[in-house]
Design a protein around this nucleic acid. Structure first.
Lengths: 193, 193
DNA sequence: TCCTCCTCTTGAACGCCGTTCAAATTCAGT
DNA sequence: ACTGAATTTGAACGGCGTTCAAGAGGAGGA
């Protein structure tokens, strides 16, 4: 019932995760992956066609983990919508800072095959955002809020913030979320639970 | 008066820019650069020590161009501060979309030497932002606004926006800037010309 | 048992990469 | 013309993604 290589496929992905965490995104090469998983490069290419495929699979897993981390950070429906959004933003920052290699693969890896660069699991995140914001705000506004928060995290993870902002990432997230909430309010943020 | 290699150095940087624009960031390799500039790889390494050095030099030039593009987009002191900020945001987006290879080198290239990843010329941009926003807002708030806008542009350039946001980048920039202005207002945005 | 046929695996090979360095070249000063 | 220092060269090293001819393995029939 299960495809021939499925065990090996999972072993490869597990080793990919290990390599990423221990040695960073640079270490994720076909040869090292094959060696770590105990097969030859040729077999790796039988399973994945291109290295892009490994990255995409890792990214799907990363998205699941990110969604889980955000669900964890979410104080839940008991808390106010504003507090929940703030918590989600801080959770997004925390996940990125804690997993720079996965973050890099997810957002900075150059995928040659143009097919959706972000895994479809992104919709899970947007759905969570939607459930917190209520049905009022447009998709565009929600995605803009995500992108704004993402900008802070991306610059923080890539170590591209000016010195003046060092250590202020959390406060900057709070500022962006606060402003975003005011912007969303004009679109009916929080109406209709 | 001029250092021994300065002519060659400039030739290399000019060819680097050409390679970037014509063939993208992948084409910027030591061998291709040396061939294009008419010298050997060894000489390239005499001038730049590492390829990182070439990237850093290109990034300084990119920052200058970006600053010039923003100065061009700025309607000037005659316009309102809000209109100016909006124009700067749209200019930032336009530059990124028009120069994806330079953008990639500036914000996504993995620099091994940790020295400030962003060229010091970034301060020019922040100074422009400061001059438009007035002395009220804190550095943190201004950098947060920049980061928020940056997030939209980065996701757009990296083609990592969900389909729902395709073609809506300009409107998303407008949303982020509007919300940012409201946030900055609390910090005295626009007081004291 | 042996022989076929088909699938899966292997690792050497290709052309690229960043980087190094011994040797060749260049050239100013004598 | 010669010397000595500075500069340039390109082959070499180890690593990369990717391909593919050759080999290994096993299922089914004789």
């Amino acid at each position: 019932m299960r495809k021939p290589h499925e065990d090996l496929r999972e072993a490869v992905l597990a080793e990919a995760g290990r390599l990423l965490e221990v040695e960073g995104a640079r270490a994720l090469s076909a040869r090292r992956l094959a060696a770590a998983a105990g097969c030859s490069v040729g077999t790796l290419y039988n399973i994945f066609e291109h290295l892009d495929g490994v990255v995409r699979a890792v990214n799907r897993e990363t998205m699941k983990r990110l969604a889980a981390a955000l669900a964890e950070a979410d104080p839940g429906e008991g808390a106010g919508r504003a507090a929940r959004l703030e918590a989600l933003g801080q959770g997004y920052l925390a996940y990125g800072v804690a997993n720079p290699a996965r973050w890099e693969l997810l957002f900075r890896y150059r995928l040659d095959t143009p097919a959706e660069a972000l895994p479809a699991e992104l919709s899970t995140l947007l759905a969570l955002l939607r459930s917190v914001a209520g049905p009022g705000p447009s998709d565009e506004a929600l995605i803009a809020l995500w992108a704004a928060v993402h900008g802070v995290v991306e610059l923080a993870v890539a170590r591209r913030l000016p010195n003046a902002a060092e250590g202020a990432e959390g406060r900057m997230i709070a500022l962006v979320i606060e402003a975003g909430i005011r912007g969303l309010a004009a679109e009916g943020f929080g109406r209709d639970p």
